[in-house]
């Protein structure tokens, strides 16, 4: 009898420890999920243009010397505004590159201004950005209302702004595509959905 009791208690102890480990692991996973799921991206501080506006058409020239037009209808384009002296931009470059392999029906463009041409060329070489058009234009940044870096603008194939915002992480950058697909303009829009009471139109419900 006593032997069985000892065995039972030992077994129960084992189960209790295993279960409390499982509970902790689950709470931890829920926490991670909350962090990931946060509609982190695209905090919009742009006063110049709005999502849905026609993207300003700007003629620019790439570092390689070929002319191109940003904002022209035709193909979707992601314009990623960076600067050689911006550490967060640098940390996002690998993500930018991997994203460019996933979103194949979209042009990936890097944009910058200021600094000397040499610095930009060194930046392109050291970060292996040769495959992307890299444009230098102060006008471009100003027209798209870029105040803080790293900033990204997704232009839809019809030449309208799909989504845009400051990007600080992989989630932010990916959320631009997500936001465009869902039709949510920005982080603020997600967090502050239109007030259902305010939208309610009594006329509409009168039969």
């Amino acid at each position: 009898m006593t032997t069985w009791l000892v065995v039972a208690v030992a077994l129960l102890w084992f189960i209790v420890i295993a279960l409390s480990l499982a509970v902790f692991a689950l709470t931890r996973q829920i926490g991670v999920l909350y962090e990931r799921v946060a509609p982190a991206g695209a905090l919009m501080v742009n006063q110049t243009i709005k999502v849905g506006d026609n993207a300003p058409e700007i003629a620019v020239e790439t570092l390689a010397g070929s002319p191109m037009k940003i904002g022209a209808p035709g193909k979707a384009a992601l314009v990623f505004f960076v600067a050689p002296d911006c550490p967060i931009c640098k940390s996002l470059l690998p993500i930018f590159k991997s994203l460019s392999q996933v979103e194949t029906d979209c042009d990936f463009i890097l944009a910058s201004d200021g600094d000397t041409l040499k610095e930009h060329e060194a930046y392109v070489t050291s970060n292996k950005l040769g495959g992307f058009p890299y444009v230098l234009s102060e006008l471009l940044g100003r027209s798209y209302g870029v105040a803080k870096l790293p900033y990204a603008v997704l232009i839809r194939p019809d030449g309208k702004i799909g989504s845009m915002g400051i990007v600080n992480s992989r989630e932010h950058l990916e959320s631009l595509f997500e936001a465009e697909a869902l039709g949510i303009a920005s982080l603020q829009d997600y967090l502050n959905p239109p007030d259902p009471v305010a939208i309610y139109d009594p006329e509409e419900h009168r039969s």
Partner: peptide
């Protein structure tokens, strides 16, 4: 077991704040 419960409780408090952030 007590310590694991403590960790879980902490994590739940943290989750609650993350949730209210959302």
């Amino acid at each position: 077991v007590g310590y694991l419960f403590y960790l879980s409780y902490n994590q739940l408090c943290f989750n609650q704040s993350l949730q209210s952030n959302l």
